[in-house]
Design a protein around this nucleic acid. Structure first.
Lengths: 222, 222
DNA sequence: GTCTATAATCTGATAGAC
DNA sequence: GTCTATCAGATTATAGAC
């Protein structure tokens, strides 16, 4: 009656499993995200991850098979979450869409900084695992938003700027607060940025960008 | 007559040596910069660096002693070069100082992309080697420029923004073109950004930032 | 100074007891 | 499912011939 396909290494079923499995996987993935974010794929060791998760090394292999596999799961996870922020760029009022997007990206940098850093590390390494996702979903999203921004420019609703540069600026400026957190901390007398300073930065970034885009007419008078 | 302190491993003299030494060191450092930039300190291997430099592994140890030592030399080198760009933030006309600085940072991202990426990797890792430099020289520079920007605001020459956020935005936006080059390439149909697109991005970033800072009065009319 | 060979340690992965 | 013990290969560093 027992089906041997279903025990032992994962993969027998799609990726289901009891709550014990799910719980262990979550524990390991959280630890792995931190370690990979700091050391990169090749720099991280399974032992460091095991120690951070508080489990024996062998358990990680039991649940994820290989280091590569574990890493890929995280990349996929981060891509999926990224889509959430991407959706917030969707109002038809330029300044509202852009402010919403900037705020969503900043919230993400605050709430899941290690995800952002893992991504940065992956890109620095040449995007060996994320390339497919970038060329497909991300590229598509980028093109669609460029079209929207282009339309706003034609309609005179924002100042003429290169849409792509604008989007890169938003990515860079928001992710900076996660990716360069250790530098920011050192420049803040060794104290990590508190929530208030972070919120101030969020507003400030949005203000600079949005003022930079305000059309020549319709100046914002008090 | 011969002094044994002066042969064998470096360190006998400060860091002098014949042209052969200097040439070999330069060759190895260039290769190491590329490898460390992509894999990070712990992810890079001496063998990869040796292969990239086209020398036997043992030679690297002969010239630099340890991996750590080689890496530290690079960090120092990059810090020093960074100071050059920092100097360009020095005009008393706000828009000129800022545009000059943005352009200097962009030029650096173009000319020495691996230096920027190595730095990014170091920060992601928690700045274990660069911490001292960041807390001292970089912090000092940052404070001095914040004072200048603050003065401009008081004098009504630029819109009131958080000076630190502004500087972080400039760092992030310019370094993005070096650090995230692989992502940018993938989003550009697999072709690296050419010089023209890069120059366009440089102008575009400066435009957005500077427009974002233009004071409420004295609007730029045609 | 340059290079091959090798020592000492670390790392990903697995075996197999519980 | 969990954990200890361990293997095979990689990795930093050195020894020593040339």
């Amino acid at each position: 009656m027992e089906n041997s396909r279903d025990q032992g290494r994962p993969g027998g079923r799609k990726s289901a499993g009891g709550k014990a499995r799910r719980q262990s996987e979550r524990l390991i993935m959280n630890a792995a995200e931190r370690i990979f974010a700091v050391r990169g794929f090749s720099g991280a060791t399974m032992e460091q991850i095991a120690a951070a998760a508080g489990v024996p090394k062998a358990n990680i292999h039991y649940y994820f098979g290989t280091k590569k596999n574990l890493y890929q799961r995280l990349i996929r996870d981060i891509c999926e979450e990224w889509l959430a922020a991407a959706q917030s760029f969707d109002d038809d009022v330029p300044l509202r869409a852009l402010r919403g997007y900037i705020e969503a990206k900043m919230d993400q940098a605050w709430e899941r900084p290690y995800g952002s850093r893992l991504w940065a590390n992956e890109i620095l390494a040449g995007a060996p695992f994320a390339a497919g996702y970038i060329s497909a979903e991300l590229h598509e999203w980028l093109l669609s938003r460029e079209r929207i921004i282009g339309r706003w420019i034609v309609e005179g609703r924002i100042r003429p700027v290169e849409p792509r540069t604008l989007i890169y600026m938003i990515w860079a400026s928001t992710q900076h607060y996660a990716d360069f957190a250790s530098q920011i901390t050192l420049l803040n007398n060794g104290k990590a940025l508190d929530k208030e300073s972070f919120l101030a930065a969020k507003r400030s970034i949005a203000d600079i960008v949005l003022n930079g885009l305000a059309p020549l007419s319709a100046k914002n008078s008090p």
